[in-house]
Amino acid sequence: MGPAVNARVSFSSLTPHNLGTLRKLNTVLFPISYSDRFYEDVLKPEVDEFCKLVYYNDIPVGTICCRIETKGDEFHLYLMTMGVLAVCELRYPFPEYNDSIPTKPYRSRGLGSQSLQQIIEAAKLLNKPKISKIYLHVQISNAEAKKFYEKHGFQEVGIHEKYYKKLVPRDAWIMELTIEQ
């Protein structure tokens, strides 16, 4: 299911000024608090194309944040967080308390797909450095998320045991997508 007719989906870059919005979204979306370092890194110019606020009808409702890692002479894009308001996040298991929110308002509107596709396209276009693959972690209880990533061409390449220290189950799939050169 895609967004309703006339719905406007757009992305905007992160700036020091709209970090407050990112913080707000992260607080609601993820059962984790991010350090100041996280918020400094997402502002770096090299990840400008990979860290975005997602707008639905001009209201910020989601975020996607990546970082670039060096592995030998290769560059990998690591998808740190991705979430759309009250939509089950795909990176971390979505906590129970969100059920108390009256709805999952922005679910099933293709926002996750569009955001991910946006990142994949940007990774393909990047020349310096050349990105060879995109990877991420999914908790093994979250089959739905796994399916979502597979739909977008990601493949499971292994299991990171005891990736989570306190969440159960503790293991995570490692999923990756090779970028064709």
Partner: peptide, 19 residues
């Protein structure tokens, strides 16, 4: 902020922080 390592420092710490 400041309670433990940053998530990107060590992925394994994430779970701990989340917990």
């Amino acid at each position: 902020t400041g309670n433990g390592a940053a998530p990107m420092e060590n992925e394994a710490e994430l779970g701990k922080e989340a917990g």
